[in-house]
């Protein structure tokens, strides 16, 4: 017995096993090679006559023989059994389309509302809600926008009988919420808003906003910046930065518009950001002392920031939607892609 004999023997055994035509023949081969009285035990016994120096190599070779034959027997057995089963029941066409109940999807606007509220929840905000039908008080007066204020001209409003209106901004929730509790306040309010805009590719008479409000001792504009920086990174990617531009809203002072650096080009300029490197995302600012006074907070004791952004606009930017009307068209083939 030498190593070469064992290697040759292994090859021969494997060839015979592969050719075994039925389970019975296979079993006979198994018994012959590795059965209790088969070839392998005999060779193992013969090991004791092998010179000590050759023993380890010879022992390993016999082990390889055993493993190879055992695996080949199992493999051939499975194949023979499968063939026998297919002969009985026919073969399975595994190229058939898969079959399971479908998974539904959330509307892209909903997905963004959920995503943004989830990010803010992780930052300690809770979700607050307000009615779609508002009074002039909560939509305007409580937000430092008296009846003759020019900014009431900014938003053209849908009115209802009895002087009520459809809220033009989720900011209407601010005073409602603050009236019912003492600081600290840290809320986000997603919701539907309405403006008397003619619907076109970028305007919709009914749309969604998410409003944020944080009131506490010594909240600063720098806090607003840092929180929005975090939000921007969470929403659009780790490299995204924010910048503030001075603006005007009646209910915040100072007021800013917030741009995010473009998530597509990283700020270098591309089609999405119209080559500017920045995308306007939201309005924000420090809560005007008059708003605090309306709800009975002491503007000397607390300060706060507020922000608001349009969800449709965000959806159009993030998903690359070209026309806002697609979001309300509800074509199943379009929605199924989100």
């Amino acid at each position: 017995m030498n190593l070469q004999d064992i290697e040759n023997g292994t090859a021969r055994a494997l060839a015979e096993l592969a050719a075994a035509e039925d389970l019975k023949a296979l079993e006979a081969l198994r018994v012959r090679y590795i059965g209790r009285n088969g070839l392998l035990p005999k060779l193992m016994q013969g090991l004791k006559d092998v010179p000590a120096a050759d023993k380890p190599a010879m022992g390993q070779a016999l082990n390889r023989f055993k493993t190879a034959v055992t695996d080949a027997v199992a493999g051939r057995k499975a194949a023979l059994e499968a063939a026998a089963r297919d002969a009985r029941t026919g073969s399975l066409d595994i190229s058939l389309p898969g079959r399971w109940a479908r998974q539904g999807r959330l509307h892209p606007i909903q997905q963004l509302i959920d995503r943004t509220t989830d990010i803010f929840r992780r930052m300690g905000f809770t979700v607050a809600n307000g009615p779609d039908i508002e009074t002039e008080y909560y939509n305007f007066d409580a937000l430092n926008t008296p009846p003759d204020h020019v900014s009431r001209d900014l938003a053209d409003t849908f009115y209802l009988p009895g002087g009520l209106l459809l809220r033009t901004q989720t900011s209407a929730v601010q005073a409602r919420y603050m009236e019912t509790r003492q600081p600290p306040v840290r809320i986000v309010c997603p919701g539907r808003c309405y403006r008397r805009d003619t619907t076109d590719a970028t305007h919709s008479a009914n749309f969604h906003q998410i409003e944020g409000l944080y009131v506490d001792e010594a909240v600063s504009l720098a806090d607003l910046k840092s929180d929005l920086d975090h939000f921007a990174r969470e929403l659009m990617g780790p490299g995204v930065r924010t910048r503030f531009r001075t603006h005007f809203f009646p209910f915040t002072e100072p007021s800013v518009e917030v741009d995010f650096s473009c998530h597509m080009c990283g700020g270098g300029g591309c089609r999405v950001c119209k080559q500017s490197g920045w995308i306007e995302i939201m309005g924000a600012g420090m809560v005007d002392p008059n708003v605090f006074a309306q709800v009975g907070y002491d503007p000397e004791a607390v300060t706060g920031y507020a922000f608001g952004m349009g969800i449709e606009r965000l959806a159009m930017i993030l998903f690359g939607i070209d026309d806002i009307r697609r979001l309300y068209e509800n074509d199943g083939r379009y929605l199924a892609q989100f």
Binding site: Q103, L166, Y328
Partner: peptide, 11 residues
């Protein structure tokens, strides 16, 4: 449960 969400106008 396999349903696709839609959104329609309030009016």
């Amino acid at each position: 449960l396999g349903l696709q969400q839609i959104m329609n106008y309030s009016f």
